[in-house]
Design a binder for these strands. Structure first.
Length: 482
DNA sequence: AAATGTGTCAACCGCGCGCTC
DNA sequence: CGAGCGCGCGGTTGACACATT
């Protein structure tokens, strides 16, 4: 059980111990603890590599430090985290990410390891449940702090689009951006200009953390309709969220991506991974797993303004670089982004109306050509909307916004019928307020009566951790064996 | 009762940073 | 200036307990 002879980090000769000492690994015994305790009492903390030399303990310095820090040092708190501590952790994580040591510094008596374990467990559980990583009240609260006033979101009650976005918000903190609703229709157009279809379909906001569910958590139906790639792949998206799948049909003919691409519908796959796969991306940002799950909507066209990232738009790698730089997934970044978006809203509104935008015309033309190529591969029964290819390519580019929206709505309905997409988001039964008695059924059902207002609709989620009426994460039902 | 899945905890590992020589 | 070393951090893994089928 307890392995012997570990090299424990760099080498066995750490700390100048030249002779080969077989260092013990595995669980510590009480005797070893006592030796270490005694040693630290005499010598103090630090100089851990000297412990083995001076105390005879057959543990490497690293192991000693870890044991001391996590178990032996005084004033360590043991036992489960208190609600306050949990709240603090979540709040801190939203601000600083996986900086466990820094979090531990804010939580007296708690170790980074403890916090890390707690977070990973929590994350796993929430991902399984299809819940956002952060409670929505936290997102809103931080947004409000940034903007000094509550968001004023109003979406038509009749808008199916709104229902999708609202439901999607429950699954993705990216959607917490209060201007997201209004802008997504606009940005679906810009998105088409800025992203390859591959990126679009694999944008993490579309296929991020809904493992185990069969839905398109973030997909605008208008966007689907206006993106020729999505006809086939929306079906795929609808089917393949519980494991590996093929991204494209082999006959789809996107010549810039390896086809077929194996894709896992977990948090580990995102558009940036795929950009790298297809040679588009820049360096890896070394994202944490959690951060991968909460990609911002950056390549939803938000990054077009130079104002956002302070550079000139030139397409290609630089575009990707911009995207990647805004890819921390931290709330702070999301909020910064929202501010930047606010600043450049006016100029983008002009873009929608046909004025020059930040994207090079060549890049746009490339994408347009690509669309045409792909449309030729779309089965006729799918491209039934009556629009010509050029019509599709022109959608949103030079029309009035109202016309675009109307066209989207018409096509939305057609497409949703085609896709046989009964529900934008699957909601477990136990998720419902007042039906907490059923804690063992994860079967999906259609969301009832989606309310129009964005934040009110995600109320369930924003309180899910804290409101006693809702399902506290650590009171969630265990995931049943399949 | 056995098999399997999940959660929790503890420990290890690799990497990077800062210091010293 | 660069190599070696000590240390801390974050990611990952393994063991065990418990729950579920």
């Amino acid at each position: 059980m307890v392995s012997q002879g570990g090299r424990c980090g760099i080498s066995n000769s750490e700390g100048g111990v030249g002779h080969h000492v077989v260092l013990k690994k595995g669980p510590w015994t009480a005797a070893e603890d006592a030796v270490l305790l005694e040693y630290v009492k005499r010598q103090g903390e630090g100089n851990w590599n000297a412990v083995q030399k001076n105390s005879g303990l057959q543990r490497c310095g690293k192991s000693c430090r870890l044991r001391w820090a996590n178990h032996l040092r005084p004033f360590l708190k043991k036992g489960p985290f208190t609600p306050d501590e949990e709240k603090t952790i979540i709040d801190l994580h939203s601000k600083i990410g996986n900086k466990w040591a820094r979090m531990a510094a804010q939580l007296p008596g708690r170790t980074d390891n403890e916090i890390k374990n707690y977070w990973n467990t929590r994350l796993k559980r929430r991902q399984r449940a299809g819940l956002p990583v952060y409670p929505m009240d936290l997102l809103q609260q931080q947004y409000n702090q940034q903007h000094q006033q509550p968001p004023n979101i109003s979406v038509s009650p009749s808008s199916s689009f709104a229902s999708i976005i609202s439901a999607a918000a429950a699954a993705s903190p990216s959607a917490s951006h209060p201007t997201f609703h209004r802008r997504l229709n606009q940005n679906s157009i810009n998105l088409m200009k800025n992203c390859t279809p591959l990126d679009l379909l694999n944008h993490p906001t579309y296929c991020n953390n809904m493992t185990g569910t069969k839905s398109i958590p973030f997909l605008s139906r208008g966007l689907i309709n206006n993106h020729p790639f999505s006809f086939q792949n929306s079906v795929l998206l609808n089917q393949s969220f519980s494991g590996k799948s093929l991204l494209f049909d082999a006959n789809l003919g996107h010549n810039s991506s390896p086809i077929p691409l194996p894709v896992t519908a977990t948090n580990t796959t995102n558009s940036f991974d795929l950009m790298r796969l297809s040679g588009m991306g820049t360096d890896n940002n070394e994202l944490s797993s959690i951060q991968n799950t909460i990609q911002t909507s950056n390549n939803s066209g938000y990054m077009e303004s130079d104002d956002v990232m302070g550079g000139a738009s030139s397409g290609g790698d630089e575009q990707c670089d911009k995207i990647a730089r805004g890819n921390s997934g931290l709330l702070g970044d999301l909020l910064q982004e929202s501010q930047a978006i606010k600043r450049c809203e006016d100029s983008e509104d002009k873009d929608i109306n046909g004025e020059e935008d930040g994207l090079s015309k060549d890049a746009f033309q490339d994408f347009k050509n690509c669309n045409i190529d792909l449309m030729s591969n779309v089965p006729k029964h799918i491209s039934h909307s009556g629009l010509s290819i050029s019509d599709r390519s022109n959608i949103g580019m030079n029309h009035e916004k109202a016309e675009v929206a109307e066209e989207m709505n018409i096509m939305d309905d057609d497409l949703m019928r085609l896709l046989d997409c009964p529900s934008p988001v699957c909601i477990p039964d136990w998720y419902d307020v007042g039906s907490s008695t059923n804690t063992s059924n994860y079967s999906s059902r259609e969301p009832s009566n989606v309310t129009p207002t964005y934040f009110s609709n995600v109320k369930k989620d924003e309180d899910d951790d804290w409101d006693e009426n809702f399902c506290c994460w650590n009171n969630m039902p265990r995931v049943l064996n399949s």
